[in-house]
Amino acid sequence: MQRVNMIMAESPGLITICLLGYLLSAECTVFLDHENANKILNRPKRYNSGKLEEFVQGNLERECMEEKCSFEEAREVFENTERTTEFWKQYVDGDQCESNPCLNGGSCKDDINSYECWCPFGFEGKNCELDVTCNIKNGRCEQFCKNSADNKVVCSCTEGYRLAENQKSCEPAVPFPCGRVSVSQTSKLTRAETVFPDVDYVNSTEAETILDNITQSTQSFNDFTRVVGGEDAKPGQFPWQVVLNGKVDAFCGGSIVNEKWIVTAAHCVETGVKITVVAGEHNIEETEHTEQKRNVIRIIPHHNYNAAINKYNHDIALLELDEPLVLNSYVTPICIADKEYTNIFLKFGSGYVSGWGRVFHKGRSALVLQYLRVPLVDRATCLRSTKFTIYNNMFCAGFHEGGRDSCQGDSGGPHVTEVEGTSFLTGIISWGEECAMKGKYGIYTKVSRYVNWIKEKTKLT
């Protein structure tokens, strides 16, 4: 034993070699072989497995989906700052455009905790909710729209109204504003409101030439003092309507412009014939205590009207009353817009006519005020429907199939267009061939041609 100890002390290297040989010859039971080890760690190889990531292109799944990435790591994937920024906006807080917040056709661009709407022409605001041009839906104005110097929408209202708090709607500024039905039992019968379409306001006024200088022999019209197929109006439903009495009662109609003036057809009036105007009328054979009678003290036909040349060209006249009318729910003026808007309103496509005229061709006159909704007829169809001249200051309205029309005794009465609950004068009943005849239409004086003249002559002093 002493000898062994001496050998170990003198030859430590020998001992180490012996131990190493023993270990190498022993069977290893701690580690699995290569094949079995792979069965336990069965993990798919990654895209760049075996390579240094710093030297390969980034992978979106590896960089940002398996674990949260930084902007720089995302930049490695896209290799483009702009594309990385677009991805980053949604990656950080989701897609803010998912709810489609942009209105009126706006395009949404996502941002971090926010979004941006790219608005089409005519709109602005956070969600493109603000109209900035009158060309689109009248700028959301209830009545009139004008573009300011910086191309912003400025709404306005006709006389007797003021802008509401929203700067879009119009509200009454006087007790009985024009064009409004205020009798409670008839307010439910107000005709369907007309909503502004998209309009090209630059070209809204037709490029028409008034044929002022045409000389033409007097034409022989049949029954051209021209509501057939209409309905009984309720008291106060058309408070701007008046009836004219002269040699015979209810020979023509008219509309209240203001307390002192009536507008009617020029062919209705004769110099030297006494005319009485009755406002607030409903049943011409009954006294309903809503009527107001006034005498006409002055007749002003349009300066281009000449019955000797043509009885229905420039067929418009103004009547001055001896005493002002007292405005109330049964006696209310009709609204008159400017030339541009009167023309736009007419193009809405349908209007209402009213009167006490004959209820059928050569038949009896109506006792109760009649009204009828009539569609506008395109000019080409209008011209083809008659052998008589249709001037540019006239328009056609009615039904091709016949059966409904204005008729004798309705002449001078109103053709009105309702705009968001307020009625505007767009025409004056003038003439036609018979009444409600198939293929024939009622012919009306186009008020847009005469609004400046009306307003100039009827100013209240």
Rank of each mutant, 00 (worst) to 15 (best):
T445W: 02
F224N: 12
G230E: 10
G432M: 05
G403T: 11
D33T: 09
A164H: 11
Y441I: 11
N135Q: 09
Y391Q: 14
H267E: 02
N203S: 07
S184C: 05
L327W: 14
T194D: 11
G432H: 08
G105Q: 14
L52T: 15
P414V: 07
A192F: 07
T276C: 03
F345V: 04
T271H: 03
D232N: 14
Y444V: 07
E61S: 10
L52K: 12
L189W: 09
A192C: 04
C102F: 00
Y441T: 08
I214M: 07
V195Q: 11
L41I: 12
Y391L: 11
C18H: 03
P120F: 04
T271D: 03
P172G: 07
R140S: 05
D110R: 15
G349D: 13
A317D: 00
R404G: 15
F123S: 05
E142Q: 12
N310L: 04
T276M: 06
E434H: 13
S184K: 07
T158P: 04
N295Y: 03
K293E: 13
G236C: 03
N310Q: 08
V202T: 12
L369D: 04
T332A: 11
V447H: 00
Q408C: 13
E124S: 15
G94D: 09
R83S: 13
K387F: 05
K68I: 08
E124T: 13
R379V: 09
V77M: 10
G229V: 09
S448W: 02
Q143A: 00
W240Y: 03
G439H: 07
Q185K: 09
I428L: 13
A308N: 13
L24A: 10
G254H: 01
Y352N: 08
E193K: 09
P239K: 01
N306G: 03
N203E: 07
K188L: 08
T332K: 06
T445E: 03
T458S: 08
N452I: 04
T458M: 04
G402L: 14
E10W: 15
K457D: 02
P301A: 10
V174R: 10
M6Q: 08
S169V: 07
P175F: 05
Y47P: 10
S156G: 07
A173M: 12
V242I: 05
N100S: 11
P301C: 06
N135Y: 05
C18F: 15
I256E: 00
S217Q: 12
E433H: 14
N113Q: 13
V4G: 11
P333F: 00
S423D: 03
S70D: 07
E86P: 10
L32P: 07
D95T: 15
N48Q: 10
T194L: 07
A265R: 01
Q143V: 00
L211H: 10
E129A: 09
V326I: 10
I136P: 15
K347V: 03
G363H: 12
H303A: 10
F31A: 09
E285L: 11
N127F: 14
E208I: 13
I17A: 04
K260N: 06
A164G: 10
I262F: 02
Y450N: 01
E66H: 06
K89D: 13
F238A: 04
F176A: 04
T461L: 10
C407M: 07
A366N: 14
T381R: 12
L319P: 01
A233K: 05
S385R: 13
Y201T: 12
A207C: 05
E73S: 08
F221P: 13
F224V: 10
E10R: 04
S220T: 10
V368Q: 11
V153A: 09
S107D: 09
V269F: 04
V154M: 12
N295E: 07
A207N: 11
S204D: 11
H400F: 06
V4Q: 11
Q90R: 06
E79I: 15
G351I: 02
G160Y: 02
V269C: 07
D232I: 11
S169W: 06
A307P: 09
Y91M: 15
F71V: 11
P12F: 15
N245S: 06
T458I: 05
R140L: 14
V77A: 13
T84P: 14
C170A: 00
K146D: 11
K45N: 11
S448R: 02
I136W: 04
F345A: 05
K137Q: 10
H289R: 07
F78N: 15
L60N: 14
E98G: 11
D405Y: 13
T389D: 11
C252P: 00
G253I: 13
R364H: 08
E259P: 08
N100F: 09
K293H: 11
N306Y: 05
V77K: 12
R83M: 06
E76K: 15
F87Q: 14
R75F: 06
D405V: 05
F176P: 00
Y441C: 03
N104P: 02
N151C: 04
D405G: 12
C396N: 01
E116A: 13
A279T: 03
R358G: 14
M437L: 15
N166C: 02
A192Y: 09
E288V: 05
V199H: 10
I210E: 14
E53Y: 06
C155N: 00
P177D: 00
Q408I: 14
S423A: 08
S385N: 14
L383G: 10
G106L: 02
E53F: 06
G272M: 03
D95R: 14
V202R: 11
D150C: 04
I390R: 10
G427C: 01
E165P: 14
Y450A: 01
M394Y: 05
K109C: 04
C69N: 04
V56M: 07
A308G: 12
P44G: 10
T190G: 10
E27A: 07
K45Y: 04
K274I: 04
P239M: 00
S406G: 15
G230T: 10
D405H: 14
E129G: 09
V153F: 14
N42L: 07
E433R: 06
Y312P: 03
F71T: 13
E61C: 03
S220E: 09
N135A: 12
A307Q: 13
I309W: 08
Q241D: 03
F238R: 04
E129K: 04
Q167L: 12
A207I: 08
V153I: 11
N38E: 15
A37G: 15
A266T: 01
I262G: 00
Y441H: 06
M8Q: 12
V368D: 05
V277A: 07
G402N: 10
N283V: 07
N304G: 10
P175H: 08
N283A: 09
N245R: 03
V30N: 13
T85C: 04
P324A: 07
V153G: 14
P324K: 06
R3H: 06
D338P: 12
V243I: 11
A279M: 01
E116Q: 11
V296G: 01
C128G: 02
S49W: 09
C97T: 02
T84Y: 04
I7L: 10
R294K: 03
Y391S: 12
I334M: 01
P120S: 13
A337Q: 01
W431Q: 15
A279G: 03
V181P: 11
Q216E: 10
A207E: 12
G50F: 09
G125D: 02
Y161G: 00
D223W: 08
L19C: 07
A380F: 13
E53D: 13
Y391T: 08
S204I: 07
Q167A: 07
A317R: 00
C69H: 03
G21Y: 12
F123L: 07
T186D: 13
L372S: 14
A337G: 06
V153T: 15
K446V: 02
Q219F: 08
N328C: 03
Y47Q: 10
S99M: 15
L52I: 15
K126Y: 11
M8K: 14
Q2M: 12
A37E: 05
N306C: 04
I214A: 08
A317Y: 01
Y305S: 02
